[in-house]
């Protein structure tokens, strides 16, 4: 068996807001293997997004250890975490989070700017990815000039531009109609199949969850059980 891409050991995270303390994650263990397609489901507030942030080096746990591609990143400083995100992780958000002043092409190319990669190479790779997500005729459109589904495709292209080891999508279809949502899930599934990218998708939608090979069920900051999906969707 391959090395796990992600390994969480006894990870906990709490938010203190004045009097009340919210324990978003309560000592959680999780392994995700290289090339896996994992779906995370669970009720609102169960800690799914918090978990995603910790897997993606966007946030650090209060307790426990986080290993990404075999490396313990628990003690990384802000710059090391940023570097890791820039090189190994791709994020897709429910609200797309595109930069509204930039064109599709510039939005997709943006992560490479921070890696110090030159403009022509950036734009070439961004154009390739936009073509892959079916938007080769929308390169100069600003986010406001795109449909929701198109915006999410742009954000998927952006997440892929650094050729990430792991793609993290937090409710990627949450703001889309079911038909468009299906297209997006197909696109993500294709990435997993064709590129072998490790994928973690948080979703509320049972139909989306069907795409995942393994389902992780979260309740109250803990993993309840995991189950393998039947079949070979």
């Amino acid at each position: 068996m391959k090395e796990p891409m992600v390994e969480l050991q006894n990870v906990a995270k709490k938010y203190i807001m004045g009097e009340t303390t919210v324990r978003a994650l309560r000592g959680l263990d999780l392994k995700i293997n290289n090339g896996e397609f994992v779906g995370i489901v669970g009720p609102s507030g169960s800690g799914k997004s918090t978990l995603m942030h910790i897997i993606g080096a966007l946030d650090i746990p209060d307790q426990g250890r986080v290993l990404l591609d075999g490396k313990d990143i628990s003690d990384y400083d802000e710059n090391e975490l940023a570097e890791l995100r820039g090189n190994k992780v791709g994020f897709v958000f429910q609200t797309f989070n595109l930069i509204h002043t930039l064109s599709s092409l510039d939005n997709v190319a943006l992560p490479l700017t921070f890696q110090g990669i030159g403009k022509s190479e950036r734009e070439e790779r961004a154009a390739e990815l936009l073509e892959m997500v079916g938007l080769s005729d929308r390169l100069t459109h600003k986010p406001a000039e795109l449909s929701g589904g198109e915006q999410q495709r742009v954000s998927i292209a952006r997440a892929l531009i650094n050729d990430p080891d792991i793609l993290l999508a937090d409710e990627p279809t949450g703001n889309l109609d079911s038909e468009t949502g299906k297209d997006i899930m197909e696109l993500i599934k294709g990435l997993n199949r064709n590129r072998g990218t490790t994928i973690v998708v948080v979703t509320h939608n049972p139909r989306d969850a069907e795409y995942a090979v393994r389902i992780v069920n979260m309740i109250d900051g803990k993993i309840k059980n995991g189950k393998e999906n039947e079949g070979d969707n």
Partner: peptide
């Protein structure tokens, strides 16, 4: 939010 996005895609504090 934009700053958050840039950080999520790998921008360092100095950048």
């Amino acid at each position: 939010r934009e700053i958050g996005v840039m950080k999520a895609v790998g921008a360092k504090n100095g950048q």
